[in-house]
């Protein structure tokens, strides 16, 4: 049965359905509703909510709870997630599962609180030190804010790695119908966790490998698991691609505008389709390359100065021309604006 819900709140509802029972965070626009709904809901279902003194403290609390085997999350926006980068490197290095929601806003620096997608590099390429990856999911609706958060917890435990739910101010603040199903929570076994019991007394959660060979082996094992994820976990959505000559590529809020744009272009006789990555890491490169076979041109649109476009170009490897159009500062393009931008980039000048 559908209920109306705000994107940021849907994240917390999805987390609770996934069996997450610990939230450690810090207020920041446009993500504060995540902390507020967690503060309201978690304690009522036997969970823990704590507002930390900073995002640095918060991510290290996430580290502690994850080390103890608890499904745990935090939510923030660009400036807060920047403070969490060291912690995320430790979490990846110690192979600890957790979920981090980044509701992106205008940057750099203080920027503003309007939506942007300029944390892509920081999240998808990894903004902390050292070789590691974040698994990154990109919801484009309130329903996906819940569904992808649930998926995030499963992937975090499956790969023992941080998972980032990367969204933006609009998807976070938007309200849409949300369909939730109460389901029986099956939490995976975590024999590696440290829980103050005789069975876990021998366990150690740490990211230190003093011996160089040991650290290299450790990173090789991490690399192997990332490759497994690259094979098994890419997710994407395509619309109107059967006969598409131009493929519009975008995620999150932009993919919503591109869907309307593709439909508007089709009414003008331009065969446009949409390719929407849902996992930004692992990036759906193979699917994109396959889609390129029937397409003359790609137009990538982001609320940034061109970050995901690099992964699109890597995936297509020069086979098909890739154009880019971006808006920043919190400006979100209108359908008419994108229609015009796509047409000017096609050979067909209208």
């Amino acid at each position: 049965m559908r209920q109306l819900c705000k994107g940021n709140v849907a994240v917390v509802k999805g987390a609770i359905l996934a069996g997450c029972r610990a939230y450690y965070g810090y207020p920041i626009t446009p993500a504060s509703e995540i902390a507020e709904s967690a503060a309201l809901y978690f304690p009522q279902v036997g969970g823990t909510f704590l507002q930390a003194e900073s995002e640095v403290a918060a991510i290290n609390m996430v580290y502690g709870a994850a080390a103890a085997g608890t499904r745990v999350m935090t939510g923030s926006s660009g400036p807060g997630v920047s403070l969490m980068q060291e912690g995320m490197s430790y979490l990846a290095g110690a192979e600890l599962p957790c979920v981090i929601v980044d509701v992106m806003r205008g940057g750099p620096g203080l920027g503003n609180i309007a939506p942007e997608q300029s944390d892509y590099f920081a999240m998808v390429k990894g903004g902390g030190h050292g070789n590691y990856r974040n698994i990154v999911l990109a919801p484009a609706s309130v329903q996906e804010m819940a569904d992808l958060t649930m998926l995030a917890f499963d992937l975090a435990d499956k790969y023992r790695n941080p998972v980032v739910v990367l969204t933006d101010g609009f998807v976070g603040q938007m309200m849409e119908p949300l369909d939730l199903e109460d389901r029986e929570i099956r939490l995976p076994e975590k024999p590696w966790a440290v829980q103050g019991t005789p069975e876990t007394r021998a366990n150690l959660v740490s990211s230190i490998y003093l011996e160089t060979d040991e650290l290299e082996d450790h990173q090789r094992r991490m690399e192997a698991k990332y490759m497994r994820a690259q094979q098994a976990e890419p997710r994407y959505e395509v619309c109107h691609t059967e006969d598409a000559e131009v493929l519009l590529v975008g995620y999150g809020i932009v993919s919503r505008v591109l869907l309307s744009t593709a439909e508007a272009l089709r009414q003008e006789g331009v065969k446009a389709g949409l390719f929407r990555p849902i996992t930004l890491w692992p990036f759906p490169s193979q699917a994109l390359a396959k889609a390129a076979a029937k397409v003359e041109k790609f137009v990538v649109v982001e609320l940034s100065n061109g970050q995901m476009v690099e992964d699109v170009r890597l995936a297509l490897n020069g086979k098909v021309p890739v154009e880019f159009y971006g808006r920043v500062g919190g400006n979100v393009p209108s359908v008419a604006e994108l229609q015009h931008q796509v047409l000017t980039r096609l050979a067909v000048a209208v």
Binding site: Y24, L50, A52, A57, M61, Y63, G64, A65, T70, Q195
Partner: peptide, 10 residues
């Protein structure tokens, strides 16, 4: 901070 969350988990 980590000890806070460990204690609250256990």
């Amino acid at each position: 901070a980590s000890a806070t969350a460990i204690k609250r988990s256990c």
